[in-house]
C-alpha cells in the first residue's frame, strides 16, 4: 500500500490539511477526512452530479477527482454556501419553490446552479434546464428546481445590480 500523502487546501475559506492515500477520491476525503458530509455520493462515475463542489471557482465532480489533485485548491462545499447563518439566495429560492424533496441531490444541484448562474446570470427556462441537466434528481421532476434557479437569478441580478 502506498504511503499516505499530505494535502493542504482551503475549504469554505478555511485552511485545511489532511493525510490520505494517493488513490483516495476527493469526495471521500471531503466526507471522511474533513468530516463535511454535506457532499453526497450517488454514482462514483461522474453522471449523477450529487458530489458536485466548486473547485477554484468552477463546478467539479468530486468523485472524478483524487484528493491529491486538490492540493492547494480553493474548494466550496455546501457547508460554505450559507453565510453568517443566512441562506444563499439559491438556497432560499429552493426552499420557497419546493426545489427539493429527499434532499440527496440538493448540495450538488445548488453548487451546479451556483456555477451555472456565474456563467449565465440571466438564463431562459430552457437554458436553466440544460444547465442543471448535469445533476440527476429523482424526486422533484425538476420543475421546482427550475423555478428556484430562475427566482435566484432574478434575486441575484437585483442585489448585485
Amino acid at each position: 500500500m502506498p504511503e499516505p500523502v499530505s494535502i493542504s487546501l482551503t475549504v469554505n475559506g478555511i485552511a485545511r490539511e489532511g493525510r490520505c492515500e494517493p488513490r483516495k477520491l476527493l469526495v471521500d476525503f471531503i466526507r471522511e477526512d474533513l468530516e463535511l458530509t454535506g457532499t453526497h455520493v450517488g454514482c462514483e462515475h461522474g453522471i449523477c452530479g450529487a458530489c458536485t463542489v466548486i473547485v477554484n471557482g468552477e463546478a467539479a465532480r468530486s468523485c472524478l477527482m483524487l484528493a491529491v489533485q486538490a492540493e492547494g485548491a480553493e474548494i466550496l462545499t455546501i457547508e460554505g454556501l450559507a453565510k453568517d447563518g443566512k441562506f444563499h439566495p439559491l438556497q432560499e429560492a429552493f426552499r420557497q419553490h419546493h426545489g427539493l424533496q429527499c434532499g440527496f441531490c440538493t448540495p450538488g444541484m445548488l453548487l451546479t446552479a451556483l456555477d451555472f448562474l456565474r456563467v449565465n446570470p440571466h438564463p431562459t427556462e430552457l437554458e436553466i434546464r440544460e444547465g442543471i441537466a448535469a445533476v440527476l434528481c429523482r424526486c422533484t421532476g425538476y420543475q421546482g428546481i427550475v423555478k428556484a434557479v430562475d427566482a435566484a437569478a432574478k434575486e441575484l441580478g437585483r442585489t448585485t445590480g
Partner: peptide, 13 residues
Amino acid sequence: SLMDYLPPTAWEI
C-alpha cells in the same frame, strides 16, 4: 451504470 441506464434529466422533462 448511469452511462447506460438513463433516468431523465431536467432537459427531457
